[in-house]
């Protein structure tokens, strides 16, 4: 594919979205398998405790018992292993084939089960974006081989990613710590997502703290404009956003966003290329 011009074609972009989403799913499944102790009965996400949150635990009945086999231990360990297997299959599967559809079905079902199992606990921001991407990739197979469905899928993913940045930016502008410019300095003092070294540096360099804090929401709020301008502007903004996600992963440990948001970038390039075409650029 020609990197500069090939983003105009859905058939060229979708495999990139699929492969990045598959990589993210593989990492997420691997991390959950690494943390399998959490899913054992005595673990923090053990089924005896998680069933307090679940949407599937109406007492009695064959369906409920069936779900308990899957959601309890070791059943849920096998669900995670199947997620890893499906992600590997998706990485290697040819675009649009039966293997791709099967892998997407397993990944989407696994995402649903994790959500239904402990509603709101055990999967976080990056997982949610990745699940939306995987669900969209599966939905387009409802009209197999259709270019229209493939393009609708890419528009949807691009729209969701744009919304992700824009909505986050707008929400931040409304809140005092982001406007004041010390939100990052506060977050970096957090025990889970913080980083003592970076927090100390920001405490000594308050001006930089303000610039970085304001920079985050300015970049997010301006993102739709970058999509409209397209070309080198969008490429540069995506590069900065990629650096931002890598920085967030490095400092805060939130690596899920790196994979999930990167998977949306080819769809953003597709949408921008189409908009540029309409505007006669």
């Amino acid at each position: 594919m020609n990197f500069a011009t090939g983003w105009n074609e859905a058939a060229q972009c979708l495999p990139w979205v699929t492969k990045f989403a598959a990589l993210g799913a593989l990492v997420a499944a691997g991390e959950l398998l690494w943390n399998r102790h959490l899913f054992r009965d005595e673990g923090l996400l053990g089924w005896p405790l998680a069933r307090m949150r679940t949407r599937l635990a109406a007492p009695g009945g064959a369906i409920t018992r069936g779900f308990e086999q899957v959601l309890g231990w070791p059943g849920f360990g096998w669900v995670q292993a199947s997620q890893a297997g499906a992600a590997i299959l998706l990485l290697g599967a040819p675009a649009g084939g039966a293997a791709e559809i099967a892998a997407l079905c397993v990944l989407v079902l696994g995402g649903w089960l994790l959500h239904l199992r402990s509603f709101g606990y055990g999967h976080y921001g990056g997982d949610r974006v990745r699940n939306v991407v995987l669900q969209a990739l599966l939905l387009r197979h409802l009209a197999p081989g259709s270019t229209v469905a493939a393009e609708a899928c890419l528009w949807f993913i691009a729209g969701t990613a744009t919304l992700c940045y824009f909505a986050a930016g707008v929400c931040r502008v409304r809140l005092e710590p982001w406007r004041r410019g010390d939100a990052l300095a506060i977050i970096l003092r957090h025990e889970v997502w913080g980083h003592a070294g970076c927090a100390g540096w920001l405490a000594r360099h308050r001006g930089w703290g303000r610039i970085l804090t304001w920079g985050v929401w300015v970049l997010e709020c301006a993102f739709p404009l970058a999509l409209l301008l397209g070309g080198p502007v969008l490429t540069a903004v995506l590069a900065v956003l990629l650096l931002m996600h890598l920085g967030i992963a490095w400092v805060m440990g939130l690596n899920g966003f790196v994979w999930a948001m990167t998977a949306t970038f080819p769809a953003l390039l597709f949408a921008s290329a189409r908009i540029s075409g309409w505007l006669g650029r």
Binding site: E31, L38, L44, Y121, G122, Y124, W250
Partner: peptide
């Protein structure tokens, strides 16, 4: 009870240590 994550260079791509801390924090 420290919820601080174990830090590593790898965590840009791979960070299994986040889950447990994040879970307790969310509670």
């Amino acid at each position: 009870l420290s919820l601080a994550q174990q830090w590593s260079w790898w965590r840009v791509a791979w960070n299994p240590h986040l889950h447990e801390s994040q879970l307790v924090e969310k509670g």
